[in-house]
């Protein structure tokens, strides 16, 4: 299961697991983001490459208009996935 909570126009919280079965719904939610946005991962337990592609696509889209996404609160396993994929050099994950 995945819950996507938009706390503010520039802030999204992910709760649960973002895998291939949830990626289409996540794409729809992330397509609404504009400008500089923050994605909160504190309650995300799992992400697969399908979830990574949602974030990568969003980052590319926002960068065309000077925006970006910041990733916050990643647990060690989720952070490791970003590192294995080489995404730690693409995203602001501090």
């Amino acid at each position: 299961m995945l819950e996507i909570v938009q706390d503010a126009p520039d802030s999204i919280r992910l709760i649960g697991r973002l895998d291939a079965v949830q990626s289409e719904r996540a794409f729809a939610a992330f397509d609404l983001l504009e400008g500089d946005c923050t994605v909160h991962f504190e309650q995300l337990d799992y992400i697969s490459s399908a979830g990574l592609s949602v974030l990568l696509h969003t980052q590319q889209r926002l960068s065309k208009t000077g925006g970006s996404i910041k990733l916050r609160g990643l647990n060690p396993h989720v952070k490791q996935v970003f590192e294995y994929a080489g995404f730690n050099t693409i995203f602001d994950m501090s």
């Binding site: 794409f27 697969s48 490459s49 592609s53 696509h57 994929a85 080489g86």
Partner: peptide, 20 residues
Amino acid sequence: LLLYAKSKKSGGFGVHIMRK
């Protein structure tokens, strides 16, 4: 990765991650 980001595919770099 940058070319990949332009598409909305969801399994394209799975093999890359599996090998890691």
